[in-house]
Computed example of a mutant assay.
Amino acid sequence: MFSRGRRSDISGHGNTNVAELELRPGGMVVQKRDSDVNQNSTSKSTIKVNVKYGSSYHQIQISSHASFGELKKMLTEPTGLHVQDQKLIFKKKERNSKSYLDVARVKDGSKLVLLVDFESRERRILETLKIAKREKTSKSLAEIKVEVDKLAEKVATLEAAASEGGAIVELDIETLTENLMRTLITLDEIFGEGELKLQRREQVRRVQKHIETLDMLMAKAKSVSLKNEVNMARESKVHSGDHVRGRRGNSAAERNHKKQQPLKHFDSVVMTTKWETFD
């Protein structure tokens, strides 16, 4: 199948590069795989570095092509330091997290020093607190929105009853107004930035609008109540006048009746100037 010269090349005679070729089943000649070479290259790419943190030493096995940031992540568990709080020193120079170990000539057995980056820790803590505050504000605004929605439904019910001429209880209006005022006070104690500030402003506007509606309903309810009181007073006055006129009519009738009655006859009394004398 192959020429004599080609066969000699494959069998290792007459060719110095025969170790790089191999014969596959089917007669295909390909480059020879060397598992030993791959294993050696893999072992060379993995290094062990010694990291000093305080009085402790940590031996980390890592790829030589890894970045200092990846090394920091591996140091998080044994040291308890957050990645952003770490500062790696190699050859008396702080190394950036994005730079690579092999570029910085970190080799197997190299020694590094790990320090606490206090400035970075302070920034991280402040940012964490800021995020927590935003989340709390967002949650509070969401709860207030739900409460305002419930109160808005009650205000709409009263407004509909008033437009249809129904009776409105002033106590219901006062209770709703007090609840809305308490919500407004809660909103005054909330501070937000950006989108949260806009959400807070929207809820304040809604609450104020509902309070104004309740004020108008209260004025209308008081007007109706005052009108009813005036009407009742008039009716009471009319009834009182009729009663007085009735009493006056009865008194006149009684006087006429007395005039028409005949005088009573009493026994006659005889007056005399004769005095009876006694011995």
Rank of each mutant, 00 (worst) to 15 (best):
N17F: 15
N228G: 02
T175E: 15
R121T: 09
T186C: 01
F191S: 15
K92R: 07
P25M: 04
L158E: 01
E159R: 13
F278G: 09
M74D: 11
K130E: 05
D149T: 15
L114G: 06
A142R: 05
D279A: 13
S268Y: 05
E143K: 07
E127R: 12
K130L: 05
L171C: 01
S223P: 01
G5K: 11
E77T: 11
E119W: 10
T16S: 11
L126H: 05
N15E: 06
V29G: 04
T76W: 03
A66D: 14
V269G: 03
I185M: 07
A253I: 12
Q31G: 09
L75H: 02
S67H: 05
R121L: 04
V49L: 13
E254S: 12
N40I: 14
S64N: 03
K136R: 12
V106P: 05
I125A: 02
K264T: 11
V51L: 00
T42S: 09
L171I: 10
S97D: 15
E153T: 12
K136C: 04
L151V: 04
K107I: 01
A219K: 10
L75P: 03
S97Y: 02
E20L: 04
H65N: 06
A161Q: 10
Q261Y: 02
F90Q: 13
A167D: 08
L101I: 08
H65F: 11
E159Y: 02
L141S: 04
S223T: 10
N256C: 02
A19M: 06
L151Q: 04
I185Q: 15
L151H: 15
A142C: 04
R205L: 14
L176A: 00
R121M: 05
Y53V: 06
E229M: 09
L226A: 15
S223Y: 06
A104G: 01
K92L: 08
L151G: 00
R201N: 14
L115Q: 08
N179S: 08
S138Q: 07
L196A: 07
S225R: 14
I190V: 14
M1Q: 06
S110F: 00
S251T: 05
E195A: 07
R200W: 06
S3D: 08
G109Y: 09
G166C: 00
V113Y: 11
E195W: 01
A233C: 02
I131H: 03
R6P: 02
T273Y: 03
L180I: 09
Q208N: 12
L198C: 00
I62W: 05
A160V: 07
E135D: 12
N250T: 08
K107L: 01
E77M: 07
L23A: 02
K274R: 09
K93P: 00
S41E: 14
D102T: 06
K258E: 11
L81M: 11
Y57T: 08
T79P: 01
R247M: 14
R245K: 15
T213G: 03
K32P: 04
V18W: 14
Q59P: 11
S163T: 09
F118E: 15
K107Q: 13
E212F: 10
